[in-house]
Design a protein around this nucleic acid. Structure first.
Lengths: 253, 253
DNA sequence: CGGGACATTGAGTGGCATCAAGGCGTGTGG
DNA sequence: CCACACGCCTTGATGCCACTCAATGTCCCG
């Protein structure tokens, strides 16, 4: 009973980053075997979070970086009035906690949207290893870079796109990340609620619901609660473009 | 004629970070005298930019970080269609270029909004010094942190605030940064155009203009083109709060 | 003094939020 | 196993805020 199939699986996964299906997408990408073992020694353990459980909370002291192995999480900030802004959704192979590197304190909360498993990288150990392995240092920088770029895109979307364009961009981004994971990019499973999507996009839930309906009526999507199939990727991509949005808001000059 | 007052001033400023009026607000903050000299040796020179000139352009290779010594700049991204999103305004003592650390390429453009003088910190030298001076490393991290936090605030503002709240928050932020510089926080000089403000806030220029008028009519501001006096800081702060905005948009759940 | 960029103001419109009602799915307890 | 309740999602009606279009005013610079 100690070696039922689930336990065996977890033990295997625990063994090493090298054996992980995600290692080409994750921190180990582009790192050679010896270095990989070194990194591996820093990965303390894998935590499992049930839906709704928090990986860390806004204001928590910073101890470690995290990588999602399976499942998905959302990150959000909450102000004094309890208003929430969803900052992002984190998929397998993606990193969590880099925003805390700077202040030794997490500026946001991370919550599991479904049962998820997480690799934990204690920062003091990681820091030491990074100091010894320039390749890992570069890769860490690259991974942090992804965060910054994503933040900028989010900002541009919020500032300059209409509701329908925002949803299209969101779905496109999700599809792209599914493809990275060798999943079917045409068949998405939305682990987040309509409320989370709306909040992330700076809209209300009714608008998001209406947009799903409209895009379904237009033959672009087939929507069934959490399952979304992209029937016309070409039309979806078209909606992501700025077409009608061009020259709408104040251009800097 | 070689030693007119302006030239003398610049020469003095050139001499060292230790002599700079900004050094408590800038990268040298919290660093001791010996370390300061070490940092000083890395500051190559001071560049002067006229209004409208670019410090770096989106896509440029990354070579150095920059600190504004006087004047002000704006940073923005531009997509394929020429649509612009203003990301931020950079005041004296604030750092520029950290977003490029990650990719060795600037993901945005930085443009002077008025005649500005800039300290340049060649990155290879800075990197070496940072490796030797943990205090400087920590301070650099802290400075980068400021950027990330600002980005998050910008995002929350875009996603969750009404037009008037956005302008109030913008003015408040500007006033706070003026205070940091020991300037009169009640008397702002807006070096950026109404178009830039509107774009930064995700609004159109007419809306911004109307809001200035409305806030002037309400006795909060005295506005005269680029000069803005804050007559009622209490009311301005009140407008920054979320009051009516609370529970308006989809809360994450 | 004239031209052009920037800024202000007004009128009208439209897109998205708000308010309200009802359907669907899931979980829980009888 | 069913009834019920609750949360999530969808759909419709209405209203408002901010965008659009248009005209005029103001400053700056040549």
């Amino acid at each position: 009973m100690e070696n039922g199939p689930v336990v065996v699986d977890i033990e295997q996964l625990r063994r090493s980053c090298g054996a992980c299906a995600l290692h080409e997408l994750c921190l180990p990408a582009g790192i050679d075997r010896n270095e990989l073992e070194r990194l591996d020694s820093a990965v303390r353990d894998k935590r499992t979070l049930d839906r709704g459980k928090l990986l860390f909370r806004q204001g928590d002291a910073f101890n470690a970086l995290y990588v999602v192995r399976s499942g998905s999480l959302k990150t959000f900030v909450e102000n004094a009035d309890g208003e929430v802004q969803v900052l992002g959704f984190v998929l397998p192979g993606e990193i969590l906690g880099v925003a805390a590197l700077v202040n030794d304190r997490h500026p946001m909360t991370a919550e599991a949207m479904e049962r998820s498993s997480i690799c934990e990288l204690p920062y003091t150990q990681l820091q030491q290893i990074v100091g010894e392995l320039p390749a890992l240092h570069r890769q860490l920088m690259r991974v942090i870079s992804r965060e910054v770029v994503a933040d900028n895109s989010h900002l541009v979307m919020m500032g300059r796109q209409h509701a329908q364009e925002r949803l299209a961009i969101f779905l496109q981004s999700l599809a792209d990340r599914h493809a990275r994971l060798s999943r079917d990019a045409g068949a998405l499973t939305l682990s987040m609620s309509r409320y989370d999507i709306a909040n992330y996009l700076g809209l209300v839930v009714e608008t998001v619901s209406r947009l799903f309906s409209r895009m379904e009526a237009a033959g672009i999507l087939a929507v069934n609660r959490k399952s979304v199939r992209i029937l016309r990727p070409d039309l979806l991509a078209q909606l992501c473009g700025s077409h009608a949005a061009a020259a709408r808001r104040g251009e800097a000059g």
